[in-house]
């Protein structure tokens, strides 16, 4: 493929890919600062980036701690939800009746709003337990992982299945050389979607009771006490957390693709 693009060198492409979004971000911040500072948007409508940055540095310790608490909830939820999602999808791909049994349940889970579930689970597991939030993150992660994995496991073509049969391949050989590699990109897409959902739901779940200390709890307390700049600093930390987890799944996707293609690509 690389032979074709003589015009644009890959290195220039990469630089551009990195520089462009950073430039857009900086420009956005400048416009924001200008809006607040010069045009005079009031500080509780929208604090300026410099105020938020000041709050961030002043509260670096608590922010990191809060991000850790929320992050652990999100990651544990993501891991458990994904594991269950992959396992159930594997079973559903094999057994039609399991699939038919699960389909309505999954459709139901997919539309359960976090806001509805959070108060119930929080009081169910007790006021000082993180389990409720982790459960919510797990449920939110489960759905896209299950659906994508199931879809991926069904992507093998009749032609490829005929070939494997003609080679008298065993079940586990077919799984290893055909079914899993075919499904892998789908599973990873599911994980990528789930990673964002896990963070969002772990965070939002903190608005509805349970122990204080996470990013969501701080956002709501700061906002409630009119500390808007601090609230925004915590929002910023939530974005960093979500992006971080997202990037991990993207890296995982790259890694698996490389492993699949034998590292030669």
């Amino acid at each position: 493929m690389s032979v074709v693009d003589g015009v644009r060198s890959p290195r220039r492409d990469r630089t551009l890919r990195l520089v462009a979004p950073v430039a857009v971000g900086l420009l956005g911040l400048a416009v924001w600062q200008l809006l607040v500072g010069v045009v005079g948007v009031s500080a509780y409508l929208l604090p300026s980036p410099s105020e938020i940055a000041a709050e961030w540095t002043a509260n670096a310790g608590p922010i990191a701690e809060a991000a850790w608490i929320t992050g652990v909830n999100a990651v544990l939820g993501l891991l458990v939800g994904s594991a269950v999602g992959v396992a159930l999808a594997a079973v559903a791909a094999r057994l039609r009746w399991i699939d038919q049994m699960l389909a309505p349940v999954v459709a139901g889970l997919a539309v359960v709003p976090i806001v509805a579930l959070a108060p119930v689970l929080n009081s169910m597991f007790g006021a000082d337990s993180e389990i409720g939030r982790r459960t919510i993150a797990a449920i939110a992660s489960f759905v896209p992982v299950f659906l994508n994995t199931l879809r991926g496991l069904r992507q093998t073509t009749p032609l490829h299945r005929d070939l494997m049969r003609s080679y008298a391949a065993t079940g586990s050989q077919t799984l290893r050389t055909l079914t899993l590699p075919t499904a892998a990109p789908y599973v990873l897409t599911g994980l990528r979607v789930a990673s964002s959902l896990a963070v969002i739901s772990a965070l939002v779940a903190e608005y509805f009771g349970g122990p204080r200390g996470g990013l969501g709890a701080f956002i709501s307390t700061s906002a409630a006490t009119s500390a808007y700049a601090r609230a925004w600093a915590y929002v910023g930390a939530s974005i960093v957390l979500g992006l971080g987890l997202y990037l991990v799944t993207v890296a995982l996707e790259r890694l698996v693709t490389r492993l699949l293609t034998g590292g030669a690509r």
């Binding site: 032609l159 490829h160 003609s166 008298a168 050389t177 055909l178 590699p181 293609t261």
Partner: peptide, 23 residues
């Protein structure tokens, strides 16, 4: 088939896209 007495080819090549030509 179990003894691999035949080789088979179809109208579609049916290559595994994540494998090199050699693989």
């Amino acid at each position: 088939r179990r003894d691999q007495d035949y080789g088979i080819a179809f109208q579609q090549a049916g290559l595994l896209p994540w494998r090199t030509v050699a693989a």
